[in-house]
Design a protein around this nucleic acid. Structure first.
Length: 490
RNA sequence: CGGGGUGUAGCACAGUCCGGUUAGUGUACCUGCUUUGGGAGCAGGGGGUCGCAGGUUCGAAUCCUGCCACCCCGACCA
């Protein structure tokens, strides 16, 4: 396959780590498996957050906040749920420290042991459904459509900046409904919201689908997901939406009086996306020169860099640059004018490219004379000189064009790296090249497990929008109604 | 928890095999001058318990023992 792995590095993961660090997005913290998100990285996350939050509000959701700590017993109420998360929970056992007897520091005070240990939330279904029990009595209390922005902790053995960290920031939606159909509709609606966000804002095409039994969320009836393809040929799960059935309602005894006067358990959903999306954003669009940010998510959409010989030339340039900045701001764009004298123009060019700023405007003495500016776009690295006023008019369109272009580029990459196979031999060859592979599967966990063990590929999802085509499982030869999506994944 | 690797200035590294001046280079930082249309040049300057603890030795970044931390590959990861 035509891998777009940056040529300067043989190892994609080293390249990725270096980029995250150099672009000042984040770094590993001394705390095991945790990450420090730096201001620039956080500014991008904030834009993503704000956009998703708007989309949740538009679909009728409100924000709320629930506790960080979950009593251990809550977690075990739902059998599948506890089994899925038990192995990766951080547990609080004591509430006090004291000076050590040898005066060398502090130790945990053994007398301050908690009666019941508290689990640091790996996800909040349990605490939230515990509240829902008190909040829901009647069909009049439904639907209950809440979201929370929070941090969660999953004690992963091996971590990777943004993609898998022990603590991460995310949003988790938790809804309760009177009917099964309404809950299913909500699950699908939120899957579509995620797909909309990732495709139209992150400029990253996704495949929507259903997870297999073995890959679904612990405690869910059905897990829907969106899957994206990274430039190294690996898949990344970019968001999940779960239909919980009545599982959590039964576990937490959340019943309501129906319009007809019967009593029934509430139907639930939950859905989440995390700072992992930052990892996707980096891996999908970046090149050897650094990040390429979609204009809709770039903290600075345009940066203006003055070029001058001697500080005496700067005021004249600044006057023009400020006008351009203000005109662009009036059009609703975020613009930065970098008039720092402490860095050279060339340094600034390289720095803003590294950080993925979509458009750079350079203004020098030559431009002052001709009433022009130089416009450079990050995605194609094209530079053109054009009259000042024309530039101001064209920049909003140019940003749209960049947004479309990088989406198209990512889509082309995915298309080039997606194939259909009929035999297992073919599959084994193709999987080594990376990318998405569609193949027939007999629907059993045994076959899925065998494929995973032998090839490290997993079923990313059973795609929602792909055509039915009958065929035979590539491994067992048993009948299959539809091809499913395979890949090696993060 | 296994397999491999690395710990020396803010960052990146050389020096370690084969012990011996004042521990070095690049970069970043500070000062000055010259520069400024793609990461500037020159000159000067500051910055080090050589991961930690023992041991061997006249002498240890270098040899020995133990420990610790980090990175990569696995195991794990609904």
């Amino acid at each position: 396959m035509a891998k777009a792995i940056p040529s300067k590095s043989e190892d994609y993961s080293l390249w990725y780590n270096e980029l995250v660090k150099k672009a000042e997005l984040a770094e590993n913290s001394p705390v095991r498996g945790c990450m420090v998100i730096k201001p620039y990285g956080f500014a991008i996350w904030e834009k993503m957050q704000r956009q998703m939050d708007d989309m949740f509000k538009e679909t009728g959701h409100s924000n709320a906040y629930f506790p960080l700590f979950i009593p251990k017993s809550y977690l075990s109420r739902e059998a599948d749920h506890v089994e899925g998360f038990a192995k990766e929970c951080a547990v609080v056992t004591h509430y006090r420290l004291k000076n050590s007897s040898d005066q060398t520091g502090v130790v945990v005070d053994p007398e301050a042991k908690l009666e019941e240990e508290l689990v640091v939330r790996p996800t909040s279904e349990t605490v939230i459904w515990d509240s829902y029990k008190n909040w829901i009595q009647s069909y009049r209390d439904l639907p209950l459509l809440l979201n929370q922005w929070a941090n969660v902790v999953r004690w992963e053995m091996r971590t990777r900046l943004f993609l898998r960290t022990s603590e991460f920031l995310w949003q988790e939606g938790h809804t309760a409904h009177a009917t099964k159909q309404e809950a299913i509709d909500e699950t699908i609606q939120m899957l579509n919201v995620y797909a909309d966000f990732v495709e139209n804002y992150m400029a990253t095409p996704v495949i929507k689908g259903l997870k297999t039994e073995s890959e679904k969320f612990a405690g869910a009836v059905d897990t829907y997901c969106i899957e994206a393809l990274m430039q190294d040929g690996k898949a990344l799960q970019a968001g999940t939406s779960h239909f919980l059935g009545q599982n959590f309602a039964k576990a937490f005894d959340v019943r309501f009086a129906t319009r007809e006067g019967h009593e029934d358990f509430v139907w639930g959903t939950s859905w989440g996306t995390s700072t992992r999306l930052m990892g996707a954003l980096i891996m999908v669009h970046s090149d050897d020169d650094g990040l390429i940010l979609p204009p809709k998510l770039a903290p600075d959409q345009v940066v203006i860099v003055p070029i001058y010989k001697g500080l005496d030339q700067l005021p004249a340039i600044s006057e023009v640059a400020s006008k351009i900045r203000d005109s662009l701001k009036a059009k609703g764009l975020t613009v930065k004018y970098d008039d720092r004298d402490s860095q050279k123009p060339g340094w600034k060019f390289a720095q803003y490219e590294l950080q993925g700023v979509p458009i750079r405007i350079a203004i020098g003495p030559r431009d002052l004379e001709n009433e022009t500016v130089e416009i450079a776009r990050r995605d194609t690295k094209e530079k053109v000189v054009m009259p000042r006023n024309e530039a101001i008019d064209k920049i909003p369109d140019l940003l749209d064009e960049i947004q479309d272009n990088i989406y198209q580029k990512a889509l082309n990459f995915r298309t080039e790296n997606t194939c259909h196979v009929e035999t297992y031999d073919e599959f084994r060859n193709k999987i080594e090249e990376g990318g998405f592979i569609y193949a027939h599967w007999d629907g059993t966990e045994e076959t899925e497990e065998k494929i995973k063990e032998e090839t490290k590929a997993t079923i990313r999802c059973i795609p929602l929008n792909s055509p039915e085509e009958s065929g035979k499982c590539m491994v067992t030869g048993k009948p299959s109604k539809q091809k499913v999506l395979f890949a090696r994944a993060y």
